[in-house]
């Protein structure tokens, strides 16, 4: 496996291997961190710390059974959870500052509606337990495979699929409740 070889090369002192691994994963790592933290600054700190830890623990990487991204995502999830606990922040921010800067359109009413829908979705996600929220973000927004998400969530693939099903149903019910009351 290419990533396991890169890790081996990194451990032997090849700086290029570190750069390649970093470049391959930095955008997805940042994408997840942005959704699991409150501000872009937090997301950058979490992402940087996750890379530092990932390379410090490189000797533990099991290339055959896990991907570097799943490994990194698991670290990001833990760091973001710790950070929220410390700050006593209740939720993640699905709509990141950069998400708010979506390309503007001339259709102001349409844009307002989209923004409202996005806020509603964010609130519904925020109201879910952390594990369900993270599952939805990983699988449905961040395009992680079920196997990757299973590694991050420390569950079997079957349990992850079941969790995803329950999380989607719960999100649907939250959205339906809001629709009914608005």
């Amino acid at each position: 496996m290419f990533e396991a070889r890169l890790i081996a090369r990194f451990r032997e002192g090849d700086a290029r291997a570190l750069e390649i691994l970093f470049e391959r994963h930095v955008d997805r790592a940042m994408g997840l961190a942005v959704r699991l933290t409150e501000t872009r600054e937090d997301a950058e700190e979490v992402t940087q710390e996750a890379f530092l830890r990932a390379f410090r623990q490189a000797h533990q990487f099991r290339g055959e059974s896990e991907t570097f991204s799943a490994w990194l995502f698991a670290i990001i999830r833990n760091l973001a959870r710790d950070r929220r606990r410390q700050l006593r922040l209740p939720t993640l921010s699905l709509t990141s500052p950069e998400a708010e800067r979506y390309p503007a359109s001339n259709d102001a009413a349409g844009e307002a509606e989209k923004l409202m829908a996005r806020r509603q979705l964010r609130q519904a996600l925020d109201s879910l337990p952390e594990e369900w929220r993270t599952t939805l973000i990983l699988c449905d927004i961040e395009e992680a495979s079920h196997a990757e998400a299973a590694l991050v969530l420390e569950k079997s693939v079957a349990a992850t699929k079941s969790l995803l099903y329950r999380a989607r149903r719960a999100l649907r019910d939250r959205l339906a409740d809001w629709e009914a009351t608005s």
Partner: peptide, 11 residues
Amino acid sequence: RLLSERHETIA
């Protein structure tokens, strides 16, 4: 709806 939230973040 979740898919529509997918947008690439660039560091």
